[in-house]
């Protein structure tokens, strides 16, 4: 069922995103707005890339642009080595079964008037994934996959807790056997103990099904538990990228440092001290100019290089957005 492995070498990344840029055009009184600027990353098979940053930084737009749910202005997105941005609509529709979306709010992402079985059958019909005779069997399989009792399939969403609903949303994403799932704040609406259960479910599904995740979250601690690699977004750009240990042990971009300084610590006396320090103000970071020397002493307009610097193998940081 899963294509791709035969089409490209197994060691090439499953998802390759290059220079992804999304600009919303100017409208009457609002000037044009660049929501994403030159976003570049890879996700290997079976790997998770965490995407962190404050709301409005472009995390969700990145997820939508990668899935071709958002029109892009420039750049390239490849899945299984195939370019998605230039694909015809019918071809893209066939590719959609390889890439799925899990959204934040399990209360609004399930149709209240549809039974669980109806919800889970819908993607099977759209993608003709199994024959109609096998629908209920497949729905039962999916519910078992997310550790829910198949007997509940004829019930409605309101009968379930937030954590159970998120399991159903995950089951729906997995219905067509995707290789790649964008999880947009999948646990931020849940209690901490439920969060831990969903995180462990995502882990076990990844192991079982060799899934790749783009895991979008504003919570640094969750990303730390879920991901091995992480990218930090600020004003539509990736400002730092590396393994979780590189970025968490040695945050190098001023915005990343601000994020870490803001996260509460579970130590009352330490946290009291932190709250007495001046508040983090991301707004004080200025973009910088390509005609002048950057924080690393390079003039990018002259060298015509991207505003990006490797500080360690696999650990990169942008020289844009520094304290003015």
């Amino acid at each position: 069922m899963i294509m791709g492995a035969s089409q490209t070498g197994d060691d090439s990344p499953l998802v390759e995103v290059r220079d992804l840029t999304v600009t919303f055009p100017a409208r009457s009184r609002h000037p044009a707005f660049t929501a994403l600027n030159g976003v570049t990353f890879d996700i290997a098979r079976g790997e998770t890339l965490g995407l962190v940053g404050q709301s409005g930084s472009g995390k969700t737009t990145t997820g939508r642009a990668v899935l071709q749910l958002q029109k892009i202005s420039r750049g390239s997105v490849k899945l299984h080595g195939r370019e998605l941005t230039a694909m015809r609509a019918d071809e893209l529709r066939r590719m959609r079964r390889h890439m799925q979306f899990v959204l934040q709010n399990p209360y609004s992402s399930l149709h209240p008037r549809m039974t669980i079985a109806q919800t889970l059958t819908e993607p099977l019909i759209v993608h003709q994934a199994v024959t109609p005779a096998r629908y209920r069997e497949r729905v039962a399989e999916l519910l078992e996959l997310v550790s829910m009792d198949p007997a509940i399939m004829d019930r409605y969403p309101h009968e379930f807790s937030g954590g159970q609903r998120q399991r159903i949303v995950i089951a729906r994403a997995l219905a067509v056997n995707p290789d790649f799932v964008v999880c947009d704040e999948p646990v931020s609406a849940l209690d901490v103990r439920t969060q831990a259960q969903i995180v462990s479910l995502l882990h076990s599904l990844q192991e079982k099904l060799k899934l790749s995740y783009l895991f979008i979250a504003h919570d640094l601690a969750i990303v730390h538990e879920v991901c091995r690699k992480v990218a930090v977004m600020y004003r539509g750009e990736i400002v730092e990228k590396g393994s979780v240990s590189q970025v968490y042990d040695n945050p190098t971009h001023p915005y990343t440092q601000m994020l870490f300084d803001s996260a509460p610590v579970l130590d009352p006396s330490l946290q009291r001290q932190r709250l007495r320090m001046p508040p983090p103000e991301p707004a004080t970071l200025a973009a910088g100019h390509p005609d002048s020397a950057c924080a690393f002493g390079e003039i990018h307009a002259v060298s015509s290089t991207p505003a990006w610097h490797e500080v360690a193998p696999g650990h990169g940081v942008s020289c844009r957005y520094r304290p003015a």
Binding site: G46, E47, T48, V192, R193, Q195, A196, V199, H203, Q206, E207, D219, L220, A221, I222, H224, E225, V226, C227, R228, V244, S245, Y248, F260, A263, V265, L266, D267, P268, S269
Partner: peptide
């Protein structure tokens, strides 16, 4: 200070243990 240092109720312990932390390396793929 006591709640964080020495929680006595099982439920408090379970809640505190479930809080994801930045200083604890997980088993991420």
């Amino acid at each position: 200070d006591d709640i964080f240092r020495a929680p006595t109720h099982d439920y408090t312990r379970a809640l505190l243990a479930a809080v994801p932390r930045l200083d604890r390396h997980g088993v991420a793929p």
